[in-house]
Design a protein around this nucleic acid. Structure first.
Lengths: 341, 341
DNA sequence: GTTAGCACTCTGTCGTTACGAGTGCTAAAT
DNA sequence: ATTTAGCACTCGTAACGACAGAGTGCTAAC
């Protein structure tokens, strides 16, 4: 068990390192007004804290930096319960007043502000495609063998894709198909569409439509493509501000990951309500073992809608970030609800 | 006027610098099999070429590197008329065989291959939204005051946006509006939609529909948002491979520009047919004054459809790049045509 | 006109030194 | 039993000079 004084010193070191990004020496800590011990005493405590695994030394004659365990402890037990600063609240308010046409805009704007305010990178997973339901299908002919299939979900989200019909198909058949599909599939969750299509609807179609096979394969192809959710970014290059990213190799590996939405989504996703903080190698992916990822969720109609995430150096401004994430998580939920009704 | 020998030496220097990225000395050139002069002679010629502005020295005792004028001359007069190598052709073929559902996929794939093959960054401007015409409008209600407006162009491209109707509007009115819009606006070029809407269609609408004003402002808002073209990237982080980009500041300024599609599009766009090569400060934007941008266009139905661009260091593999760009420019035109008919 | 030879210039690297920040230990002070 | 002052020791870094290597430019010979 750590003594009161050890906690105090640990907190001071983490705080200092977070703002200065440089190993913290005993003298630096001793100079703080609220610290009434000599450097020597602090050195002894530091030595103990190191032995316990909360601190480490880059080299023998340098100051201490927090270890991963140190950050974890700081986050779990030492965090000052920060309120969002007035200027932050003001900044957010002034940029979030606009009414958004689409939830997409709201999300994009949130990602942007979050990254601007923190100088970290924000990642927001869009309202869950998996959770939303089909509202309407439309098949609009474009040219001879092409048509555009448009899928509208109950969340107002639109997906579209061009469909090729290798053989000529009569427009009355197309109309029939669309009608049947709409009748049978409305209200079906997106992720079940493909399944339902082949199981339940296929028989009906067979009876009403010639060229049934052609049509089915085309439709199935299209649906298969639309099972992934959207990922929005803010401040992709903000990482470059951090001293720990002055190495080009690291920059590349990180930026390359950002190009793979599916990976990022897997990484960020977390349906646990409330805040999640993953420090360094607590993240599953190697390239992130020097980063902290903070996630929170937002809701729609009382159900999980998506995740907001913030990616920064392990040496992250935790108190501020946490209050920001908390705020956004609630604010996005609120705004989505308001726009809906 | 340059002598035969000067041309020969200039070409040798540019070729060498392009592959090695290091100042070229007289001895290096003299060692080449096809060069039958001593280092001393070559030094004299180099000195002359420098005076003429084709070469420059990083410092007094270093080798020479091509100046911008040197590259320009190389590109204009010294380029070996390269054929695409067999392995390149093979690589492209094997990755472009798939039939593409949408022109969007074709474009994306092209951008990807182009960047893979060159290790540079490719940028492709999508088929010109401005040039395409409206094929069909759909307004699909989602909830009480919301509907999704879907715009399909004759190129099979789909744009969509959520529309809010502040006041309650009867569904029969909505239907009327959609019918009128489709009747009057089909075939109108996208960029004229807004204009035509307010000039010609507004009167007709006024007669048939109550709550006319509400509807009009909502529609105008939506159309205003969709006047920009799409930009596709390949190998955004490829630049980091180039030695001239080992400086983090430069990386950031470049990557940030990539986030601004409008800027990039302005930069790349070029409706001149054939290849365009802009070297260094021939580009209008400061952040690009150490880059070369090669552009070419592709066609659809015999008319300008879009631009493909390749962004690399001034020290670019010009012969290969040019033959690649040439190939892609023609191939994309060909494939787009094939998919269309 | 071409080339060999040589003095000169500049950069990059290596080893040395000096310095500063910081530690860990010991012994004295509280 | 704590706390602290003092001091030797350890590293990392910046500064300096020496030196090698690459390359030039000029002169004089071919």
């Amino acid at each position: 068990m750590l003594t009161e004084r050890q906690l105090y010193i640990l907190k001071a070191i983490v705080d200092d390192y977070i703002t200065n990004a440089e190993p913290v020496g005993s003298r630096t800590i001793a100079k703080r007004e609220d610290m009434h011990f000599s450097p020597a005493t602090i050195r002894n405590e530091m030595s103990d804290l190191e032995e316990l695994g909360f601190l480490e030394k880059p080299h023998s004659s340098a100051g201490r930096i927090p270890s991963q365990k140190g950050y974890r402890y700081y986050v779990d037990h030492l965090l000052p319960p920060a309120e969002l600063s007035n200027s932050d609240v003001h900044d957010i308010r002034s940029q979030m007043t606009a009414r958004f046409h689409e939830s997409e805009q709201l999300i994009q704007q949130s990602a942007k502000i979050l990254s601007q305010l923190t100088s970290y990178t924000s990642i927001v997973l869009g309202p869950e495609v998996f959770e939303s339901k089909l509202s309407q299908l439309q098949l609009i002919p474009v040219s001879g063998d092409q048509a555009v299939l448009i899928i509208v979900t109950d969340a107002g989200h639109v997906e579209n894709q061009t469909v090729h019909f290798p053989d000529e198909i009569s427009s009355s058949d197309v109309e029939k198909v669309v009608n049947i599909l709409n009748e049978r599939l409305r209200g079906v969750p997106m992720f079940q569409l493909q399944h339902k299509l082949s199981r339940e609807v296929s028989d009906v179609l067979k009876q009403h439509v010639t060229k049934y096979e052609t049509m089915m394969t085309a439709l199935k192809d299209v649906l298969a493509d639309h099972q992934q959710e959207k990922v929005y970014y803010g401040g992709k290059t903000n990482m470059l501000n951090q001293p720990e990213f002055h190495d080009v190799e690291r920059v590349r590996s990180l930026l390359n990951i950002f190009e793979e939405d599916a990976l990022v989504s897997k990484l960020i996703r977390s349906e646990d309500q409330g805040l999640t903080i993953k420090i360094g190698s607590e993240n599953e992916f190697k390239p992130f073992d020097e980063l902290t990822i903070v996630t929170a969720t937002y809701m729609l109609d009382g159900k999980y809608a998506g995740t907001i995430g913030l990616l920064g150096p392990v040496r992250m401004e935790y108190p501020r970030v946490i209050s920001l994430m908390d705020y956004f998580s609630k604010d996005m939920t609120r705004l989505l609800d308001r726009d809906r009704h």
